[in-house]
Amino acid sequence: MNVTSDQIRAARALLHLPQEELARRAHVSVVTIRRLESPRTAIRVASLATDTICQALEQAGVEFIPNGVRRRQIGPEKAVLLTRLQAISRASATRLQGTTPLTDEDLYDNNGLPT
Rank of each mutant, 00 (worst) to 15 (best):
E20Y: 03
E20F: 02
E21R: 09
E21F: 01
E21Q: 13
L22M: 02
L22Y: 04
A23Y: 06
R24G: 07
R24M: 04
R25H: 05
R25A: 01
R25E: 01
A26E: 00
H27D: 06
H27N: 12
H27V: 09
S29V: 02
S29N: 05
V31F: 06
V31S: 15
V31Q: 14
T32F: 06
R34K: 13
E37W: 02
E37I: 04
E37P: 08
S38P: 05
P39H: 05
P39I: 09
P39G: 04
P39M: 04
P39R: 03
T41K: 04
T41N: 08
A42C: 09
A42T: 08
A42Q: 12
I43L: 12
R44V: 06
V45P: 01
A46G: 15
A46K: 14
S47Y: 06
L48M: 01
A49H: 12
T50W: 01
D51H: 13
T52Y: 06
T52S: 14
T52W: 03
I53K: 00
C54Y: 03
Q55S: 11
Q55M: 12
A56T: 00
L57C: 03
L57E: 02
Q59G: 08
A60M: 08
A60I: 00
V62G: 05
E63G: 02
E63F: 03
I65D: 07
V69K: 02
V69A: 07
R70D: 07
R70H: 02
R71V: 09
R71L: 14
R72E: 03
I74V: 15
I74N: 06
G75C: 13
P76A: 14
P76G: 07
P76D: 14
P76H: 04
P76M: 07
P76L: 12
K78C: 03
A79M: 11
V80D: 15
L81A: 15
L82W: 04
R84D: 13
L85V: 05
L85R: 12
Q86R: 10
Q86L: 11
A87H: 08
A87F: 00
I88C: 05
I88E: 08
S89L: 08
R90K: 14
R90H: 10
R90M: 07
A91E: 13
S92T: 14
S92N: 12
T94A: 15
